[in-house]
Each structure stands twice: as structure tokens, then as C-alpha cells.
């Protein structure tokens, strides 16, 4: 069985607003962005990822199909799926987009809770120091 790098197999959140296939897809993008998988290396097989995450293999098939459509990965028949050249650069961009979206959501929560800019600024500084 393939070794699956840390991060990919953390428990999924089935109650999340983010669909499961998107959660998995984001993790793969993050892993490519931080070069856990370098260009032209093989990604875990559908089978091993499905077993590790305990999800229906069709979910993984969909993730890989979407990533292939985005040309972040390519598949070789009977061998597996591989990271495309330059995928890491594009995944780093995607990573920004994904994080930006999370921050935007957090910001919306803060606005609805009527936090002002000063309170937000303090919060941001405190969190940055903690991380």
C-alpha cells in the first residue's frame, strides 16, 4: 500500500459545508503546493486513499478526475496518477485562494458579530503571535 503523507488522511468533516471531495481535493493541492508530492511523482492510488480516508472510492475517482481536468495531475493507464509539471506553482496560487476564502468567511462571521476594525486587528495580531 502507498505511504500517504501526513495531512491527506486526517479525518474528514462530513458535516462541513465544504463537500468531501473538495476537502480531499484541497488537501492534495496543499500537499502539492508544499512539495510533499513533486512534479511527475505518483499520487496514492484510488484504492489506498479511499481505504485510508474510509470513503467511497467513487469520491476519490471524482477528485482525481477534477484535478486532471484542471491539469494539475495526469494519469497513465494502469500505472496511476502523477503530479503535472508546474502543478506546484499553480497549487500555491490555489492555496492562497482557498485560505482567502476561509478568511473571508471568518471576516463575515466577525462582521455579523459586530466586531469593529480595531477589535479585529487586535485579534489578528494575537492569533499571529500564537501560531
Amino acid at each position: 500500500m502507498d505511504a500517504v503523507p501526513l495531512g491527506l488522511t486526517e479525518p474528514l468533516d462530513f458535516d462541513s459545508d465544504v463537500p468531501v471531495y473538495e476537502q480531499i481535493s484541497n488537501r492534495i493541492k496543499f500537499a502539492i503546493a508544499r512539495q510533499a508530492y513533486r512534479p511527475d511523482t505518483r499520487l496514492p492510488s484510488v484504492r489506498s486513499l479511499a481505504r485510508n480516508l474510509v470513503v467511497n472510492p467513487n469520491t476519490i475517482v471524482r477528485v482525481y478526475r477534477d484535478l486532471e481536468q484542471e491539469e494539475l495531475i495526469y494519469s497513465k493507464r494502469g500505472v496511476g496518477v502523477f503530479v503535472s509539471p508546474q502543478a506546484d506553482q499553480r497549487c500555491r496560487l490555489d492555496r492562497l485562494v482557498i485560505v482567502e476564502e476561509k478568511l473571508r468567511e471568518a471576516l463575515e462571521v466577525a462582521r455579523r458579530a459586530n466586531l469593529n476594525d480595531k477589535e479585529l486587528e487586535e485579534l489578528w495580531q494575537r492569533l499571529r503571535l500564537q501560531s
Binding site: R47, A50, R51, V54, V55, N56, P57, N58
Partner: peptide
């Protein structure tokens, strides 16, 4: 239950 899920996953492969 986990074993059961696992073999179900293998089966639909």
C-alpha cells in the same frame, strides 16, 4: 463497523 466499511469500499472498487 470500520472493518465492514472497509470491505464495502473494496467491493465497489
Amino acid at each position: 463497523r470500520r472493518d465492514l466499511l472497509e470491505v464495502m469500499i473494496e467491493t465497489v472498487e
